[in-house]
Nucleic acid binder design. Structure first.
Lengths: 204, 204
DNA sequence: TGTACATCAGTGAACGCGCGTTCACTGATGTAC
DNA sequence: TGTACATCAGTGAACGCGCGTTCACTGATGTAC
């Protein structure tokens, strides 16, 4: 990676973000160091300070970009509820797991790094967008029920988010049961189906 | 805290475990240092090496003790399913949240510190015991259904564990929605009730 | 097209720091007789 | 009850290390004329 001809890097800012995500994936969110990220980008330890205020600022940018891709993937998977809200909703759940699996460094920066989302406006916006996608999807689902039986869509979004996050953390990278006989994908799908049946969205 | 009359501490091993849990609670699981734990226990930085192989060993002991208390609390809350399996099960869910709230340092050591449970036999035993309590409770619940409708109890235990963990991580300490209008306790209870209704354990 | 110059994005050395760990040591304790 | 001595559980100094950050600097780029 540290192949560079000219004195100027050309795309250092983004290279640092990607190096950071890779480092977090390999060593965990707290273990990443600015120095090592700079080394991976083929640049001196002082160079990142031309693009970021410091370590924390870089970490927040990784999370911000993560939330944007995350929201985009969830939105694409839900596809405005086509062909049916239920199918689309379950597909979105799988997209949640796929994101955590494909972009573990970003996922960890977003949810396990201890950054303060509220303390960074751009980050809060990006995080809010992801939450919005989940709430919209829950709303579309609720519309399939008679008005009197409709659950609050924010609540449904939060339940599904919590279940998905729990599955990722506990079973996505082989935690307690270690050699769990069931994949995290099956675990989330079965859990979501039971939950949605409890809402009356799946008969029988 | 660092009040000591004699040259010997008397209970240093346990004092270090508790100092570590407090440090993790304050600064996160990766930020704790052996040196600081020793300082809090009122002892030199070299002293912990009389009781632990090193930093990792101490962290694993915190997690181990955490799992033991965790399992004990869940078991006590379930109380063999009295007076009814359903009530007892929901009570156990609240005990899960209470543990995470009362013992955040231990909870983080157990689930967020990146320790390898499989790599430490004592830790694996303690973790297995906690999982056993959840599975036993799920079994008792399943018994209330006709045999043909009984879900695998390990699956149910994992779903509930994942939901509880997700609630703790996302809403227990005010994460994405920050000022979430609903407490994590209500969030878990409503989610669990909908899920159990989906299993056919709650009619209507 | 050529040149002067401001600006940008790097460098590399240096700083102070706190960490984990090791080591020879020593004060306190407990036990054998 | 008293004493000798082995063992235990601390100390404190030292080590090498890598980190985040700052600083004066310099090479490359882009723009005005």
């Amino acid at each position: 990676m540290p192949e560079r001809k000219s004195y100027h890097h050309g795309n250092l800012r983004q290279a640092l973000v990607e190096a950071t995500a890779a480092l977090i994936e390999e060593q965990g969110p707290q273990a990443f160091t600015l120095t090592e990220a700079a080394r991976r980008a083929g640049v001196s330890a002082a160079a990142p300070y031309r693009h970021f205020k410091g370590r924390e600022d870089l970490l927040e940018e990784v999370a911000r970009q993560g939330f944007i891709e995350f929201a985009g993937r969830l939105e694409a998977a839900f596809d405005s509820g086509r062909p049916r809200a239920l199918t689309a909703f379950l597909r979105m759940g799988q997209a949640y797991l796929d994101f955590a699996a494909d972009r573990p460094g970003y996922y960890m920066a977003m949810f396990e790094s201890g950054i303060s989302i509220a303390g960074n406006a751009d980050l809060a916006t990006a995080s809010g967008r992801a939450q919005g996608v989940l709430v919209t999807a829950a709303e579309a689902l609720a519309m399939r029920l008679p008005p009197a039986e409709r659950p609050p869509s924010r609540m449904v979004a939060n339940h599904i988010w919590a279940l998905s996050h729990g599955v990722v953390e506990l079973f996505g990278r082989g935690r307690p049961g270690s050699r769990s006989p069931v994949s995290s994908s099956e675990m989330l799908e079965s859990g979501a189906i039971i939950y949605l049946r409890g809402l009356g969205l799946i008969s029988e």
